[in-house]
Simulated assay, not measured.
Amino acid sequence: MLPTANPTPPFVITRASHVVLAVTDLARSRDFYRDVVGLVVTEETGDTVYLRGLEESAHHSLVLERADAAAALRIGLRVRTDADIAAAERWCADRGLVHERVHRAHQGPTLRFRDAVGTHLELTSSMDLVPRKMQCFDEFTSGAPQRLDHFQVVSHDVQTATGFWSELGMRLAEFTAKDGTDELWGSWMEVKGNTHDLVFTNGRGPRLHHFAYTVPDASSLLHAADVAGALGFGEEIDRGPGRHGISNALFLYLRDPDQHRVELFTTHYQFIDLEDEPIRWDLSNARRAQLWGMPASRRWFFEASEFPGEPVREPLLQASPQTLEDYLGVH
């Protein structure tokens, strides 16, 4: 059976909040996210850069930290209050999950932990506030990303991951299952009323596949692609433009100088009403991946950012997706 969301979770998650990446060339990565993607630089220190989307009032949604090796350090979720942090800490302790309270600059109480499939996360209840730039149209550059929306994590066990987060109140908005069964290959889970805050897809994991920002409209995606080409990052367009079947989003995926993947997208829909049922996609239905557009490349399917020190496990389910190379007959 499909997992169902716990209507009374032990603590209240409100949205995807921020992502922390280890990068090997801090200045080059800053320039990529500022100039190619279009994010706003909030603050720079000697070894850290904080960035945000144009409509965000929180101090950061992307943190770049200088390191010797690239990695996805953590993905961040917001909870409603400080009391939710305390409740999450008790909940992790009761279940024997690795966790710790930490001090993070510009964040309120923050709790780090690993979920049931090894994803590295942190929860925070607040952030320092900064001015929104959503009407500073003279500062809109490249894709003009508005706000962080979701994460996609590659997991060796999508069923366990989905059950874990369902217990914490996340609702399944869409899912991919093997034809004729409820064997989960992918789950799109939400708490804020659109199609996803946290996605798990089948593969070698845990690894961060991508994090995603909304953009104002379809033309912003094309402009971002043009800017990427003009600034020498045309070959780092990893997929798209195109339209997904799942979530109905128009999309463009880019790879940064350390090969972390970021998505720019627009036009997904509301999933708010409690009687709404999740949309099922059979594994054999190719329209789930793209309603139109070319298939994804091998690297889009098989490459992702590892969490430091976390063993990567082979997936419980085996698949051979059709790639762009297969479509073109390139081997």
Rank of each mutant, 00 (worst) to 15 (best):
V12R: 14
T24V: 06
D25L: 02
A27Q: 09
S29P: 07
D31T: 12
F32G: 11
G38M: 00
V41K: 03
E44H: 02
L51R: 00
R52M: 09
S57G: 10
A58G: 12
H59G: 04
H60M: 06
V63E: 08
A72L: 05
L73T: 11
R78N: 09
D84Q: 09
I85H: 06
A88T: 11
A93S: 14
D94S: 07
H99P: 00
H99D: 11
H106P: 12
P109H: 05
F113I: 15
T119I: 05
H120A: 13
T124A: 06
S126C: 07
L129R: 12
K133C: 06
F137C: 08
D138L: 01
D138P: 04
T141R: 07
L148Y: 12
D149G: 04
Q159K: 14
T160K: 14
T162D: 10
W165A: 12
S166M: 06
G169Q: 11
M170I: 11
R171K: 05
D179R: 11
L184S: 15
L184C: 15
G186D: 10
M189H: 03
K192V: 10
H196L: 00
V199Y: 00
H209W: 01
A212D: 05
P216G: 03
A218D: 14
S219G: 01
L221E: 04
A230Y: 08
F233M: 04
E236T: 12
D238K: 06
H244P: 07
I246D: 07
A249F: 01
D256H: 00
P257T: 07
P257V: 04
F265T: 01
F271G: 04
D273M: 10
E275L: 02
I279E: 14
D282A: 13
D282T: 04
S284G: 13
R287W: 13
A289V: 13
A289R: 01
G293H: 06
R298M: 15
R298F: 15
W300G: 06
F307Y: 15
G309C: 08
P311G: 14
P311F: 14
V312L: 00
R313S: 14
P321L: 01
T323A: 13
E325S: 12
E325G: 08
D326T: 01
G329Q: 10
